[in-house]
């Protein structure tokens, strides 16, 4: 059985099509046309897709209530409201905001990222080149040698953060601020040093990294 997703959408055509597309991608979709019963249904779900303009309570209110009740439950806003104000309001509690008309592949990719970030997939190990990553157990195994890769706290945090944003390029400021929890100071080399040691531990050839890719002038990326 696939991961269960709660989808709240009042437009019959869009709801039907999106639900079908997600089901074809292996998710189990619980589709509601308004916020009634959302709190109860969300209990068994791993992610919520929420429209904004709904009959009765709007998506912002439902989202806030859901987040209050289930703080760890990722919420993806899927709305035809595209103004910055709406996005900012939505992102106060939601984990992502996708605007309509959307590409189903983009929606699926964002759902994947959110599920990975929330640890919904953590039971299944991630296979990345010669590595097998067990997120839940904080364990990385080198499949070629069968040995476990031992990382320091910071190295593990950096690697996990990159994995949570797989396929996204993250700037050094973004990584630093997420891992160190502090503002990046211009010229700080600690991130580069940690990544160098991290590569020495996980890459086959640290001089030509395949797992943590350097994107010149921008940052780093882990690609699946």
């Amino acid at each position: 059985m696939g991961v269960q997703i709660l989808y709240i959408e009042d437009d019959r055509d869009i709801g039907k099509w999106a639900s079908q597309d997600l089901m074809e991608r292996g998710y189990e979709v619980v589709w509601l046309m308004n916020g009634d019963g959302a709190i109860e249904k969300a209990e068994s779900c791993r992610l919520v897709i929420l429209d904004v303009m709904l009959p009765g309570l709007d998506g912002f209110t439902i989202g806030q209530r859901l987040k209050k009740k289930y703080p760890g439950l990722p919420i993806l806003m899927l709305s035809a409201r595209t103004s910055i104000d709406d996005k900012l309001q939505g992102l106060e509690f939601a984990d992502d905001y996708v605007t309509k008309p959307f590409h189903p592949d983009e929606l699926a990719a964002r759902i994947e990222v959110l599920l990975r970030r929330s640890g919904a997939h953590s039971a299944e190990p991630i296979e990345l080149k010669h590595l097998k990553i067990f997120e839940k157990e904080n364990r990385i195994v080198n499949c070629e040698t069968g040995e476990e890769v031992v990382l320091t706290g910071k190295q593990f945090q950096i690697f996990t953060y990159l994995l949570q944003h797989v396929n996204h390029i993250l700037t050094k400021e973004q990584i630093y601020e997420a891992v160190w929890g502090d503002s990046y100071i211009d010229g700080d080399k600690s991130l580069m040093v940690h990544i160098r040691y991290l590569r020495e531990k996980i890459e086959r050839d640290p001089a030509n990294p395949e797992i943590i890719e350097t994107v010149r002038g921008l940052g780093y990326r882990v690609r699946l």
Partner: peptide
């Protein structure tokens, strides 16, 4: 946007 989404 809603009809555009449906068309899409």
């Amino acid at each position: 946007r809603t009809p555009l989404t449906v068309i899409r």
